[in-house]
Amino acid sequence: MTTELSGVNLARQALVAAREQAKKNGATRKRKPKRRTGQAVRRDGREPLGLGTAVTWMMAERGMVWSPRP
């Protein structure tokens, strides 16, 4: 009795085979890429801001006052 693979099972089997072949060829990832921890400074001197900081500055420039509800 032979069962033919189709759909998800066929994709899983192909993925397993591709990973095994990659290991044999030495194409495995040795380590995870490092996350960026520093902030980038743009050439024109501007630095990226968080959304909350940008909104707070915008409100202050326009004279809007925000106060939390009691």
Rank of each mutant, 00 (worst) to 15 (best):
M1L: 09
M1R: 07
M1V: 11
T2E: 09
T3S: 11
T3M: 06
T3A: 11
T3R: 09
E4F: 04
E4W: 03
E4N: 10
L5V: 01
L5K: 07
S6D: 01
S6G: 02
G7R: 00
V8A: 11
N9S: 12
L10F: 06
L10D: 01
A11E: 12
R12T: 02
R12C: 08
A14K: 06
L15E: 07
L15Y: 06
V16C: 04
A17M: 01
A17V: 05
A17G: 02
A18R: 00
R19V: 13
R19L: 11
Q21S: 06
K23N: 12
K23P: 01
K23W: 03
K24C: 00
K24F: 00
N25E: 15
N25Y: 05
N25T: 07
G26T: 06
G26P: 06
G26S: 07
A27N: 13
A27W: 10
A27F: 03
A27D: 13
T28N: 13
T28D: 11
T28M: 13
T28Y: 10
R29S: 09
R29E: 11
K30M: 07
R31E: 12
R31H: 12
K32H: 09
K32L: 11
K32F: 10
K34V: 07
K34F: 01
R35W: 08
T37R: 08
G38Y: 13
A40M: 12
A40D: 09
V41T: 14
V41E: 13
R43M: 03
D44K: 04
D44R: 07
D44Y: 01
D44A: 02
D44C: 04
R46L: 12
R46M: 09
R46I: 03
R46V: 06
E47Y: 05
P48V: 07
P48T: 08
P48W: 08
L49K: 15
L49A: 07
G50R: 05
L51E: 09
L51W: 06
L51Y: 04
L51R: 14
G52I: 05
G52P: 01
G52V: 07
V55S: 03
V55P: 00
V55K: 04
V55N: 03
V55I: 14
T56R: 12
M58R: 13
M59S: 11
A60F: 05
E61S: 11
E61K: 11
E61G: 12
R62L: 09
R62P: 00
R62V: 00
R62T: 02
G63W: 03
G63H: 01
G63E: 04
M64T: 14
V65Y: 06
V65I: 10
W66R: 15
S67C: 03
S67R: 14
S67N: 09
P70S: 13
P70A: 12
P70R: 14
